[in-house]
Amino acid sequence: MTELLSVNGSLGALAVALLVFGFAPGLFLAAIVKLLHPDDPRRRELQAELYAVPRWERPFWVAEQFEVALREGLFPNVQWYFGRWIWHRSTIESGLDFHNEFPDTFDVPEDELKEMLRPGDRAKLMWSVKRFPGERMWVTITERNGKDLVGTLDNDPIFVHLTYGDTVKFQIDDIIDCILADAAEEIGDGSAA
C-alpha cells in the first residue's frame, strides 16, 4: 500500500510539473499576447521566444511578459477608454440648434443642400468636450438612412477622444457645413467657374 501511495504521489507531482512547466506557459502566453496591440510585432516574437527559454524558467518568464503586456498593452487601452467616457466626454452639437440661437452669426447649409448628401460627400460637424475647447471636423459620409448618417472622421482630433478614420454617427441637423463629392471634383478639375 505504501508503494501505491508513493507512486500516486509521484504521478500527481509529475502531472503538476507537466502542467506548470509544459502546458500552462504556452497557453497563458497565447492569452497574454492578446493584450498587446494587434499590430505589435511582439505578439509573434513572444510566442517564438517561449521555446528558447529553458523549461524551468518558463513560468517566471511568462509572468514577466504578463506584467509587460498589462503595462504596455492593456493599461493604455483602459486609460484611453476611461478618458474617452469620463475625462474627455464629447458630444456632437446640433448645427441647427446653434443657427436657431445665433441666426445672424452662425450659418448652416440649406435644407435642400443637406437633402442632396450621399455617401462620398463630406460633412463638417462640431463637438463639445467637457472641460476643453470643442472641435470642428470633417467626416466623409459612408451611409445615409433618412436623417441618420454614418461617416468616417477625416481629421486628427486634439481634444475629442477619436482617431482619424473612426466611425461617426450623426444626424442631418448636426451638419454645420458640407461639400458634395461632385462639386469637389469640379473644383479640383478647374472646370467650375
Rank of each mutant, 00 (worst) to 15 (best):
E49R: 07
W56S: 10
F98T: 14
G22C: 10
V150R: 07
I176Y: 03
E143K: 10
V129G: 08
G95Q: 05
W80A: 09
G83E: 04
E185C: 04
E64D: 04
E49I: 12
V168H: 00
Q79I: 01
W80R: 13
V150P: 04
E185G: 00
F170N: 03
V62I: 12
G165Q: 11
D39P: 00
D39W: 02
A181R: 03
E115P: 03
L70Y: 05
D148M: 11
F132L: 13
L14R: 11
W87D: 00
L180D: 09
N100R: 09
L153M: 07
F75W: 13
F170T: 01
I179A: 15
D148I: 09
P119M: 12
A192D: 06
R58T: 07
T2V: 09
I158C: 08
R55M: 15
L36N: 06
F170R: 00
N145D: 12
I187F: 14
A48M: 09
T142Q: 06
L5M: 10
W127T: 07
D39Q: 01
L11P: 03
D39A: 08
N77T: 09
G22F: 11
G151N: 00
E185A: 11
C178W: 05
P133D: 04
D121F: 07
T2K: 03
M1A: 14
T142G: 07
S10E: 12
S128N: 10
F132K: 13
V62A: 04
F159M: 12
G83S: 05
R58D: 04
D173P: 00
G83Y: 00
V78P: 08
E101T: 02
D156F: 14
G190E: 04
A17Y: 00
R136F: 07
P157S: 14
W87Y: 13
R42P: 01
T163E: 14
F159T: 08
V68S: 07
G134F: 05
P59L: 04
E3W: 09
K147L: 03
E186Y: 07
R122E: 14
L35Y: 06
E72C: 06
L117Y: 06
L36C: 01
R118C: 10
R58C: 05
E112F: 09
E186I: 07
H37W: 07
V33L: 05
V150M: 08
L74G: 04
D177V: 05
M126N: 11
V33A: 00
F106N: 13
N100H: 01
P157A: 15
T152Q: 15
E64L: 02
L29N: 07
R84C: 06
V7Q: 10
F106D: 14
G26S: 10
K114F: 13
K130Q: 11
L153T: 03
K34Y: 02
P133M: 02
V7M: 12
F132E: 11
D121M: 13
L74K: 09
A17T: 06
V168A: 01
L14G: 11
A184H: 03
L29T: 07
L35N: 05
G12A: 10
D97A: 13
W127P: 10
P25L: 14
P41M: 08
V160N: 02
D173I: 01
T152D: 12
V16D: 01
V139M: 01
F132D: 06
P76H: 04
E186M: 11
W87F: 13
V129Q: 08
D104Q: 13
